[in-house]
Design a protein around this nucleic acid. Structure first.
Lengths: 256, 256
DNA sequence: TTGGATAAAAGTATCAAATACTTTTTTATT
DNA sequence: AATAAAAAAGTATTTGATACTTTTATCCAA
């Protein structure tokens, strides 16, 4: 009674890491994309991925990715699990489970394409309630409204042009944006892209980018009142710009 | 340059399903545990698990579990992803990745232990802010405060008595309780254990069980004002008890 | 059939939080 | 020193949450 349905799945495990950062010059939220060197989907832009190795934790693999794909060799960063993607339609050929993680990098370090990548670039993220855009110079990726898995596979995967990200990475990005937005009012780990300390205006800039609104639409006074309990003031101000120096804060607690 | 670190992981994938239900008689929230028949951890109580098969989606596997382990053959239920557990310490021997899901069953169907299980039982869940209890008659499992993965592995795994759940299932339960509690005010899918429709008092009973407080500590009038936007009134009342008949509601939207 | 008991719904008054807006403080530039 | 910019601090209004009370619907027993 050899039944194909009884064959156990023993797939390779892909770790996909959404690496977030922030450009203090332009006030734009960024994510890192790499242009795939290998098969399949060669030449297409994608989220950085790697295969999980024996004797390596998923978190370690997510951090190794940062070193391998973009030449960044730094200490541990906050990495958190996003979700696991198992849909059989997500890639052609052999089944690929993907464990998706998110890492928040302070500053916006310069990139160099590493193993498995033709190029590595930061893309500015603009989020709207139901879709998002990624742009870097002339390169731009924009999604239609992405609401759930079925919606994604039935509507979005059909047009196969270079303007799409590889595999189901647009869907993964949509899930990531949604998760981050939901946590904005009680655990805004996304602010780790601002480094050890940040001003309230910088925090509002990140919030505005994710909510798809202008920074000035968020009142500083009210923002402080409603979100200050999430922050700890870290001593004194410091900067060389016009106007009253802002106070500096850090996240009060960082956890899932 | 054969390096063991370069060997790719190709693990079996375990689907772990936390199956929730509700006892209308006692007003208690329930989860399903099975007593393991096979190695390892034979005889120990555990969350129902199965290996993922080829040509089977993770959701399908989670539902197949319900049929195999407890003899329940029913149509599709709402199943949602909880998290993926990859820690190398989570089981002895070969590495086991576990994709954890949650299923919410209406009513509390009678159980019969299926393949791989010595017994299958509903356990009443009582949650407190930092720990929880499971009990069925004389059987009782209680955790110490479980705050994060490291805390769990360093403090909780040490005493190896039969009073513990198998593997890291206490940690998985802790993550599940935490997730459900966080969603109580904007997406209380846990109320699906109440079936197609429920009264506000039943809803409050579920909330109270998860918050570790008495039902009467939640004022019906205020609960209605703050949570009614999550519900849709489904026509008329219906019941055979004393007192004014309650209105019936259902969840307005069910999604992750 | 009627009145008491029960349970939920509906209503109200108070309190706290969120929002919109204004004023003050601080510092760089001219 | 005057001015402009930017954040902090303050205020008034509105909204939402909480505590509590009253009304309504139903069962049951006298």
């Amino acid at each position: 009674m050899v039944d194909t349905a009884m064959i156990l799945e023993q797939p390779y495990i892909t770790i996909t890491n959404i690496i977030w950062s922030f450009d203090r010059q332009t006030g734009q939220l960024q994510v890192l994309l790499v242009q795939r060197a290998g098969e399949p989907e060669t030449g297409r832009w994608a989220l950085p991925e790697t295969f999980m190795r024996a004797n390596e934790s998923a978190d370690e693999a997510a951090l190794r990715l940062i070193k391998e794909k973009i030449g960044l060799k730094l200490a541990a960063f906050h990495t958190e699990q996003l979700a696991t993607f198992t849909d059989q339609r997500r890639s052609e050929g052999a089944r690929a489970l993907s464990l998706a993680y998110m890492t928040f990098l302070p500053e916006m370090p310069p990139l160099q394409a590493g193993y498995g990548a033709l190029a590595a670039q930061w893309f500015a993220v603009t989020a709207q309630p139901t879709h998002f855009q990624l742009h870097h110079g002339a390169l731009e990726f924009a999604t239609a409204a992405v609401l759930n898995t079925e919606n994604y596979y039935q509507q979005l995967r059909l047009p196969e042009t270079m303007a799409h990200l590889a595999f189901d990475h647009e869907w993964i990005m949509a899930v990531a944006c949604s998760r981050i937005k939901n946590k904005l009012d009680y655990q805004p780990n996304i602010l780790l892209v601002l480094g050890d300390s940040f001003t309230l205006k910088e925090a509002r800039t990140v919030y505005a980018a994710l909510l798809g609104i202008d920074v000035h639409a968020i009142d500083n006074s009210n923002f402080k009142k409603t979100h200050q309990h999430l922050f700890v003031e870290v001593g004194t101000v410091s900067q060389r710009t016009i106007g009253r120096p802002a106070k500096l804060f850090r996240l009060a607690r960082v956890q899932d």
